[in-house]
Amino acid sequence: MNVQDVAARLLKAYENAEPTAPVIETDPEATITDAYRIQQEQVRHWTSSGQVIKGHKVGLSSAAMQEQMGVDQPDYGHLLSDMFHLEQQPIPASTFLQPRIEPEIAFVLGRPLEGPGVTVADAVRAVEFVLPALEIVDSRVRDWNISIVDTIADNASSGGVVLGSKPTLLSAVDLRLVGCTLHSGGELIATGAGAAVLGSPLNALVWLANTVGPLGVRLEPGHVVLPGSMTRAFPVKPGDSVVANMAELGTVTATFGVTS
């Protein structure tokens, strides 16, 4: 397979506002290693075009998301500067192709974190604070018909991020016990807890640091890390308003603009 050609096809999906065929369908020999090479090729394109890497996301880290997507392991993607949207400000619907939303506890790093060999203690020391967050996942693969190879190649289905505005120190909260309610249009659509994410969101942060470290990637101070969803992902459309309430962490709201 040609990594550059597949990366170019995925990049054109947003340019053409049209999802593309699954990578595993057009290139059935593609491996997870190939998929990360495809992802990196796109990251190089985005950064050369002026975008800045602002963090990483861990995807498919909960049993609910693995079951929903039909996969059996986590993955990771990059968070670019244009993916961040302000809370309660209308998010342009044209930004996405097939958006879904999920609640997460975002880590903001105060120290660098570089694997291999990172422990939970190292991760705790590196976290400056946490924020409630809503991640907008999106797929450039038609009908979300994805394998693990497809989602990795598609930058772990990264679409957008909305961060809440109330920082909380790790010492003030047990992330495993943080409960979450997710409302759309005022209607309760899901509940979850921090323990759904690999037993604790901190475990996802450790997994990420130790996974990208051997590739020469260091998690930097100021980076945002999304460890994974506490619930299933839910489709969103123009005009929707979604609120996640995470008990002591506070709330975060994502509002999607209405198309003209």
Score class of each variant (00 low, 15 high):
L177Q: 15
L177K: 15
L177T: 14
V178F: 06
V178I: 14
V178D: 04
V178T: 08
G179W: 06
C180L: 12
C180S: 11
C180E: 04
C180Q: 06
T181P: 00
T181I: 11
L182W: 04
L182H: 07
L182G: 05
S184W: 00
S184N: 12
G185M: 10
G185W: 08
G186Y: 08
G186P: 07
E187C: 04
E187K: 13
L188E: 15
L188T: 14
L188Y: 13
I189P: 09
I189R: 05
A190S: 14
A190E: 13
G192V: 03
G192I: 05
G192P: 08
A193L: 00
A193Q: 13
A193R: 14
G194L: 10
G194F: 05
G194K: 07
A195W: 10
A196E: 08
A196V: 02
A196K: 04
A196R: 03
A196Q: 05
V197H: 03
V197T: 10
V197F: 02
L198Q: 11
L198S: 06
L198D: 08
G199Q: 07
G199V: 07
G199E: 09
G199K: 06
G199A: 11
S200D: 15
S200M: 01
P201H: 10
P201K: 12
N203G: 10
N203C: 06
N203S: 05
N203H: 14
A204G: 09
A204W: 03
L205T: 08
L205V: 09
L205W: 03
V206A: 08
V206S: 08
V206K: 02
V206R: 06
V206T: 11
W207Y: 14
W207I: 02
W207N: 03
W207Q: 05
L208D: 12
L208A: 09
A209D: 07
A209R: 00
A209Y: 04
N210W: 05
N210P: 12
T211G: 07
T211I: 11
T211E: 15
T211Q: 14
V212S: 02
G213C: 12
G213Q: 09
L215R: 15
G216M: 09
V217P: 01
V217A: 07
V217C: 00
R218G: 13
R218N: 12
R218S: 15
R218Q: 15
L219T: 10
L219D: 05
E220L: 14
E220Y: 05
P221G: 10
P221E: 11
P221L: 09
P221R: 12
G222F: 13
G222Y: 13
H223M: 14
H223Y: 14
V224K: 03
V225R: 12
V225P: 05
V225I: 15
L226E: 00
L226H: 02
P227L: 02
P227V: 03
P227Q: 03
P227E: 01
G228R: 08
G228K: 04
G228C: 09
S229M: 03
S229R: 02
M230Q: 11
T231F: 04
T231G: 04
R232G: 00
R232Y: 01
A233N: 03
A233I: 01
A233C: 07
A233K: 01
A233T: 05
F234I: 00
F234H: 02
F234K: 02
F234D: 00
P235M: 04
V236D: 00
V236Y: 01
K237I: 05
K237S: 15
